[in-house]
Nucleic acid binder design. Sequence first.
DNA 1: CTGTTAGCGCATTCAT
DNA 2: ATGAATGCGCTAACAG
Lengths: 358, 358
Amino acid sequence: MVNIRDVAARAAVAPMTVSRVLNNPDAVSVDTRKRVEEAIADLHYVPNMVGQGLRKRRTMVLGLVVSDITNPFAVQQIQGVTKAARAAGYTVIFAHTEHSADEELHQLRSLIERRVDGVLLSPVYNTPDSVEFVQRQRRPIAVLGYDMAGLDVDVVRCDTDAAARSLTEFLIDLGHRSIAMLSGSENIVTAVERARGYTRAMTEAGLGVRITYGRFTPESGYEMAMSALRAPERPTALVTASNFIALGAAEAASALGLRVPEDLSITTFDNARTDLVHDPFFTGIVQPVAEMASAGTDMVIERASGQVAGPGRDRIFPTTFEVHRSTAPPSREPASSRAPSSAATRRGHHNEVKGSQQ
Amino acid sequence: MVNIRDVAARAAVAPMTVSRVLNNPDAVSVDTRKRVEEAIADLHYVPNMVGQGLRKRRTMVLGLVVSDITNPFAVQQIQGVTKAARAAGYTVIFAHTEHSADEELHQLRSLIERRVDGVLLSPVYNTPDSVEFVQRQRRPIAVLGYDMAGLDVDVVRCDTDAAARSLTEFLIDLGHRSIAMLSGSENIVTAVERARGYTRAMTEAGLGVRITYGRFTPESGYEMAMSALRAPERPTALVTASNFIALGAAEAASALGLRVPEDLSITTFDNARTDLVHDPFFTGIVQPVAEMASAGTDMVIERASGQVAGPGRDRIFPTTFEVHRSTAPPSREPASSRAPSSAATRRGHHNEVKGSQQ
DNA sequence: CTGTTAGCGCATTCAT
DNA sequence: ATGAATGCGCTAACAG
């Protein structure tokens, strides 16, 4: 391919002058600049950033590692990262790990080999290995999603514990007393955190806790809901740890002849953004995923370009609690108590956005 | 960062020996190899592929450019490409263009600057500019999606024209006579091709053609369906050019009090794969998107590694026609004729897979 | 089996 | 305002 010397030769200047035209045009006289630009156009010259990267020790490439690309969540992360990266002139190498910690390390290594200027990681687990690997290679990294216990690293996340509590408390306020939690894999932090928030809210209200751990899929949601709803004292409401689980649970309810929300209320996390869905159904928590990913990308770029140094920052974004059509006070017969007064005020507030928290 | 000379010094060998340990271990004695490997581990050395890329003139990076990442389609493309790339040791730079031809060229240029070894393009339009730009830079490229009239380039696609015909003919066989087509933007080839297949089938059957061009979104589908269904002679069936349009059309039908399929049959393209959906609703065409993307990636890699040269290949994948619950013979009153015999055999064959074509 | 030389494309540094 | 020398990290080609 044509290189900077070819251009220089054609314009009858030194390669250095061509370089200046590209990187610092004002330092070149208008005359020679014009000549060089013509040569560039004539030869269809495209600068080689591999050479540049070697010399400048910057590749202008960022790495993004997500767990599961089939999750709409990941798509929003990709959008957020590429948007922020593009705005700063970076491109993005994309990798996904299919929930495997080994694959995560493998992909990160591959990114380091390519000498990306920084890494965005939506991690499988919150073990320190991945972050420490990248940091040992002196590349900035930001974690998307959750706290990395005790690590000195930039983090962008929501207060999931509080969000889970508010979902649960909302159901309790509606009058529900028998509320089950359907979560994801016990190995995944978000699954555990969300279950923990549920547990706290239930315990504080003096109610019994019922948690099932499965996977973040509709199938798993279906199965978990099936066994939960067939249990002796059938719950009148479910807290699910993801939209996929909620979908499966709704199917299960329908298969059992239960109407949502009349016979069963369902709440969920990771709701799709309202502006993407015509007629949202599930009451649940919405995270500003794309914005969070953009913010994380900015943090990484700040460090890569030397604008920021020092200790890791922990940026917590507000979640939104949206009330839609999947929740209602419990019906009379199976519930152990009536709907309390606080629920009455909310009854009928369909599609109301309760607002943000934290 | 630690480089190959640091490792060499620590192992008391020449840098070349370290290089050999990494690239051709058998050419090094067991003894020295062990020493070098220790040094690598001690120093946490990760080879610099930027330097390697400059020297070998191969980056082991591929570029993937898709139009719209919010389309589940794009996700399958990403999966297919990353899978094939990873299997061959390549990583993938990902870019999306939001349906802008300018942005497409811009992203391609950025990929060329990074000296990717090859490009996968799911193009906005089938104009030659993008392909020609990449080819002029002597990088292999494969086009995902549709034919590039007269260009000498690797293409991976389906026979969309035939697929559109078969959708339409299926409806005609069911007994429908008044069938409208809701398509995407007239600027986008797939939209036009799908409309063309519909037109041919209708014309051959001696039926009138009604085509609306809009966008590939639920909102647009809703609007197009609304005006189509309010027209004087209301159609008894719709052919939609994408799943998004079909969703909007179904909403519109529901808003007008029409039942699907009793009062209105709907068929679609770009159906999600059956194994991803619990209880598929739409009768329509399914493309093996991920497999196509993988195949395109293999084609690019074959050229990048010199295994293949010569003229562009046109690889056409079979589509699958899945009959689900959104289609039925027309009801008696508004239709001009009864359901013919051929439709009777299909009536009730819900969730049947009709098989593949071409 | 191991080492030396040289250069991939570019930009920093210094000189003019 | 422009150019020459040098080296970023690595490996092909050759030498021993």
